[in-house]
């Protein structure tokens, strides 16, 4: 079972993502900020990480950069899930090392398809 780490400071989003991915058979761990995301990622070594961009302590972009600098997470897929939808935001996300970029509001079904596609590619 693939383990997925989800980091977002919004409990509604956390629950939406957690439920949808759980239903699809993923094991989901949720955290509410960037600092916890970094710690949790290092301790559980997830198969996929979903990060919000605007979070307390560390932004999703910072977390992505930090994770990518660690050889352990060089090839771990990272999806950024954010309300920032401008072209330059997407560009920043991808240049930080994100595998995919999903903007809020999002469709839970679409999120699941993207997760499956990203995990499929990384296997």
């Amino acid at each position: 079972m693939t383990q997925v780490l989800v980091a977002d400071d919004d409990p509604d989003i956390l629950e939406l993502v957690r439920y949808k991915l759980n239903q699809a058979g993923y094991e989901v761990t949720t955290v509410g900020n960037g600092k916890d995301a970094l710690e949790k990622a290092k301790s559980i070594n997830p198969g996929l990480i979903i990060l919000d961009v605007m979070m307390p302590f560390h932004s999703g972009i910072d977390v992505t950069i930090e994770l990518r600098s660690d050889p352990q997470f060089k090839s771990t897929p990272i999806i950024l899930l954010t309300a920032k939808s401008l072209e330059q935001d997407t560009e920043r996300g991808f240049s930080a090392g994100a595998t995919d970029y999903i903007t809020k509001p999002f469709s839970p079904r679409e999120l699941l398809s993207r997760v499956q596609a990203v995990i499929g590619r990384s296997v």
Partner: peptide, 15 residues
């Protein structure tokens, strides 16, 4: 309140 708050966060079938 919760439904109202979720409204701005989802799209597609869920919305």
């Amino acid at each position: 309140k919760l439904s109202d708050s979720l409204l701005s966060k989802v799209k597609g079938r869920a919305k």
